Computed example of a mutant assay.
Amino acid sequence: MTPLDQPDTTAMSTGHKSYTVWRTGANSKRYSEDDEIAQEVPVALEFNGISHATLLLTPADLEDFAFGFAYTEGIIRSAQDIYDLDVIERPQGLVVQATIASACLNELKLRRRNLAGRTGCGLCGIESLDEVQRQLEPLPPQPGRFSAQSISSAVEQLRSMQALHKSTGATHAAGWSDSAGNIEYVREDVGRHNALDKLIGHRLRLSLQQPASGDTGIAVISSRASFEMVQKAAAAGISALVAVSAPTSYAIDLANKLNVLLAGFARGSLFTVYSHHEFLGNGSAS
């Protein structure tokens, strides 16, 4: 088993592999060279020996992903509810085995989902409409907490910190910034939901080492903002979600309900606020 206070060994995985490819075009000669390709593998999640979900994701930061997925899915209540983790390599993919608190396991058995995960799909395997939206309490309002400058700064930093995307061009990223706009860490994956779960999971694991600062912070994502991205952010207590692309109507409605500042089309110094513009101290946004 991997002790929770030890380094995340799977984080040392680069998340990409080298392949020989052929470059060509209508008016170009064909030539070969090595290219870096983002890894995408099946990863099965087991809780106390019970299979719960199989998803396709990039096999880096798997411990972070397990914590984040379990938390945003409501399987665990805090980081302390996961006692240990083990990552097992199988011929067909990877298995993440987690041991969780018995109270969490009992709750999981009452509402088990049989998810057949698929990259970029957040609701695969849900059996009824009642399961789509979790019952979450609205976050505390944050009037004036953030500034347009801090959001723009965080977005700009995220672009420069996507190492895996720079190598492969095939991954999404989620970055955590403090309310002043300083990106502290970034997680990447071929799936946008997975990247956000990894980011949330990393924050949870940090909470095992040090108390939370109380800064609600900003989550910046390199993708569109769907309903479930807002739901994951709210479940993790994140009061501001900023996307480089557009949100959906469902995402906006949920952000308004759960007190999440939702911004999109964040490019350069401009962005559009779709919910809770009053959370911006200077009220400036495009």
Score class of each variant (00 low, 15 high):
G125V: 10
E89K: 09
V230Q: 00
V190A: 01
V96S: 04
I200H: 01
A148R: 01
A233P: 08
F69V: 08
G122P: 07
R111G: 15
R111D: 11
R187W: 01
K109L: 10
T20D: 14
P143K: 08
Y83C: 05
D178G: 09
V132A: 10
T72A: 03
A235N: 04
V41I: 10
P143A: 05
M161Q: 08
D197T: 11
T168N: 01
G281L: 12
V273Q: 03
R118C: 11
Q80G: 04
I151M: 03
L196S: 02
L115H: 13
L254H: 11
T168G: 00
P138K: 00
Q133M: 11
Y250T: 14
R192C: 04
D81Q: 05
Q162A: 15
V260Q: 02
A180Q: 13
E127W: 13
L261A: 05
A70K: 11
K17D: 14
K29V: 14
G181W: 03
V95R: 09
N282M: 07
H193V: 00
Y19I: 02
Q39R: 12
D35H: 12
G15D: 02
D81W: 04
T248R: 04
L199R: 00
E63C: 08
G49M: 11
C121K: 07
L199G: 00
G191W: 04
G181K: 00
L56V: 12
H165R: 15
A98H: 13
N194Y: 03
D64K: 03
S284F: 10
L57S: 12
G217F: 00
E137L: 15
R30A: 15
E63P: 01
D34C: 13
S102L: 15
V220C: 00
T171P: 03
A98C: 07
A44W: 09
R203P: 01
V220W: 02
G217D: 00
L110F: 12
R112T: 11
S147C: 03
F65I: 11
T72P: 03
N256W: 13
V21Q: 05
Q210N: 07
H276E: 03
I37M: 07
A180E: 14
I100C: 07
E131A: 12
C104Q: 02
S207Y: 06
E73P: 03
V95I: 08
R112Q: 12
D64Q: 06
L158K: 01
E188Q: 06
L62G: 00
V95Q: 13
E127Q: 12
P143T: 03
